[in-house]
């Protein structure tokens, strides 16, 4: 049977049900921050300048040298930490109710249970497969070269347009972004709640901001491949 209170080791760690959610929330918020920067840069595809700004931005990042390497390692660490903690949380949750209900329904009212909140693990799993796929396609993809203002640099724009001209890639990418939208719609406010940042006043605000943020961020990444597929001409 379960141990009594006196057996409890009174140790505060991040490896408790509460501590793990703090890790999920913190890594989640930082990953959302990265996504916003990532999207802002990608929107340079819309500049209509034949990829000049996008390539210059990509080139300036590569000029950072070892700093870029450190940033990439940090980003990968955040991602991996988020995934491993998420898996542990899901396993514990499944163990907590080994006999499932025959019938389960939401009571409505103040409940914030939605398909977005229920499918966090599934949408997360889809993103887990998506991220290496798209890194392999772009960052690790073929190296085209171009010269801007006399400086030779990688023609990332050509690669992006070339890839998104493939309907299978453009539509798969866009479809995954719908799952990203769900993940963020619950993820943003949930992260703040897990970090204990919300109270009666800020909880509804964070919830609404999360939904708007999810639509904006995922919406941007959703439009990008489709816009490129339909409207952006292949560079000469």
């Amino acid at each position: 049977m379960h141990g009594m209170a006196k057996d409890v080791t009174r140790k505060g760690t991040w490896q408790t049900s509460l501590g793990r959610k703090v890790i999920m929330g913190l890594t989640g918020i930082l990953l959302i921050g990265y996504l916003i920067i990532h999207l802002t840069a990608n929107l340079l595809v819309f500049a209509g300048d034949g990829g000049r700004l996008l390539n210059l931005y990509s080139h300036s990042l590569h000029q950072l040298g070892p700093l870029l390497f450190v940033a990439r390692i940090a980003l990968a660490a955040l991602f991996i930490f988020h995934i491993i903690t998420g898996i542990r949380v899901v396993i514990q949750n499944r163990k907590a109710r080994s006999t499932r209900y025959t019938m389960a329904a939401s009571k409505g009212g103040p409940s914030k249970m939605t398909p977005a909140s229920r499918w966090m693990a599934i949408t997360g799993l889809i993103l887990l497969f998506f991220v290496p796929w798209h890194v392999n396609m772009f960052t690790l993809g073929p190296y085209y070269e171009t010269v801007i203002d006399g400086v030779p640099m990688r023609d990332l724009y050509r690669l992006v347009v070339e890839r998104f001209k493939d309907p299978a890639i453009a539509f798969t990418y866009a479809a995954v972004m719908l799952f990203l939208c769900m993940h963020l719609a619950h993820g943003f406010w949930s992260a703040l709640q897990s970090l204990g940042a919300l109270n009666r006043r800020w909880l509804p605000v964070a919830y609404t901001v999360g939904v708007i943020l999810a639509i904006l961020v995922a919406g941007g990444f959703f439009i990008l491949p489709l816009y490129t597929y339909f409207f952006v001409p292949m560079p000469a």
Partner: peptide, 24 residues
């Protein structure tokens, strides 16, 4: 710390912020 540890020892799950508890 004691109450959270005891909650975990008893085998309850993690809170995923569904908010269904407040409705129930």
């Amino acid at each position: 710390i004691s109450m959270v540890n005891q909650m975990d020892i008893e085998g309850f799950g993690n809170c995923s912020n569904h908010g269904e508890c407040e409705a129930a």
